[in-house]
């Protein structure tokens, strides 16, 4: 089934961005820390995990289980990766955001 093309919410954008930023270290804990550091506010883990699942349903991300070896850690983790669709939707969000900014500029005047 083709994933629904639907606009991303603000928190979804933050999560996808965090995944891109953390790159190879994009585990749930890291994602939450990045968002918290950048936004300066606490992230609800309930919101985070449901958002991750929603993004997965939308086809914006994929995950895999990190192999457990005696050298790294005892508990497996999920590593998230953004999909092409995710990147495209992020770009689309950016365009929309720019559009919105232009509208604001034209109403209030640049540099307001």
């Amino acid at each position: 089934m083709a994933p629904k093309k639907k606009n991303l919410g603000e928190f979804e954008q933050s999560v996808l961005l965090a995944i891109v930023e953390t790159a190879s270290e994009s585990f749930a804990i890291e994602i939450a820390r990045v968002i918290e550091t950048r936004g300066g506010r606490a992230v609800s883990r309930g919101a985070l995990y449901t958002t991750l699942e929603r993004l997965e349903e939308k086809g914006c991300l994929e995950w895999s289980i990190e192999e457990v070896t005696p050298e790294n850690r005892a508990v497996p983790r999920r590593r998230f990766e953004i999909t092409e669709l995710g990147v495209e939707m992020l770009r689309q969000s950016r365009a929309e955001l720019l559009n919105q900014l232009k509208t604001i500029d034209s109403v209030l005047g640049p540099g307001a």
């Binding site: 883990r45 309930g46 449901t50 699942e53």
Partner: peptide, 20 residues
């Protein structure tokens, strides 16, 4: 956080949406 995950993620499980 445990409460938030339990209620939000748990609800998703009960209504049948799950990680594919």
């Amino acid at each position: 956080q445990a409460m938030s995950v339990a209620t939000r993620v748990g609800l998703r499980r009960v209504v049948g949406r799950s990680s594919k």
